[in-house]
Design a protein around this nucleic acid. Sequence first.
DNA 1: TTGTGTTTTATTGCCTCC
DNA 2: GGAGGCAATAAAACACAA
Length: 272
Amino acid sequence: MESNSFFFDPSASQHGNMFFLGNLNPVVQGGARSMMMMNMEETSKRRPFFSSPEDLYDEEYYDDQLPEKKRRLTTEQVHLLEKSFETENKLEPERKTQLAKKLGLQPRQVAVWFQNRRARWKTKQLERDYDLLKSTYDHLLSNYDSIVKDNDKLRSEVTSLTQKLQGKEEETTAKEPPGQVPDSNLLDPVYINPAAIKTEDRLSSGSVGSAVLDEDAPQLLDSCDSYFPSIVPIHSQQDDSDHDRTCFSDVFVPTTSPSHHHGESLGLWGWP
DNA sequence: TTGTGTTTTATTGCCTCC
DNA sequence: GGAGGCAATAAAACACAA
C-alpha cells in the first residue's frame, strides 16, 4: 500500500454532521467525550483517521484527538486482508500484529475483520450447502417419480400377463388330465411355471420388477444399492470404497469444506 | 431528498481450551 | 483465570428506488 493515511471525509456520508459515540474503540473514547461539542468543520480539518502505523501504538495520540467515526476500510486494506484470509482464515497473534502494522490498523481491528469474515464465509458456505442439498433432493425426487411410473406400468403388465396365463391354464386343464403339464407348454415361450415365479423373483438382483411381484421382499433402498444410477454419487467420507453406489443416507453428508479453511468443519444441519 | 434494505465495522456475552 | 473464538446484536456506511 502506498500510503497509510486515511482522512476523514465528512461529505462521504449523509450522517456527516453527527459524531459517532456508540461503538468507539476504547482507545479513542477518551477523546470522544472531551470533543463532543466540537462542530464538524473543526473535526474534518484537524483529524486524519490514522496518520501512520506508528501513531496507532501511541496512546497519547488519541487522547488529543477527536472522536472517530466508524469507517470502512480502503479497498487496498480489504484486498490485503482478503489475501491473508485466503491463506489462513485464523489469525495467530504474530500475523495479526504484522498485518496491523502493514495496513495501518489496530491489531484489534484486524482481529475483528477476520472474525466477521469468518462469519460471512460460514453464511455463504451454508447457502452453498443448502443449494447442493436442494438440487440433490430435486434430482432424487424426479428419479423417484419416474420409478413410480415404471413401477405402475410393470405392475399392469404383470396383471395382464397373469390373466392371460390363467386363461391358458383353464384352457389346458379342460383338455388334459389334472396335474399334468402338457408337453406343448414346455416348448411354448409364453409358458411360465407359476410355482417358479416367486423363486426367480427373489433371485433377481435389483430390478424394479422384484418389488412388483413380491412386496414383502426386502427394499433396495435399505440395502443401499443404487436405484438412481444417473445421480452423481455423494459419498460419506467414512466410506470411500463403494464408488458407484448412491443411497439416501449418503446424500445428506457434508461434502464441501474447503481444505484451506481449517477453522470450520461445517457439518450440515440435521435433516428433518 | 428521503425512506428502506443491505453490508460492514465493532461490541458484548458466553463458551472452550490451555 | 486469561486468551481467543463464536453468535447475536448495534449502528454507521452505503446503495438504490420512489
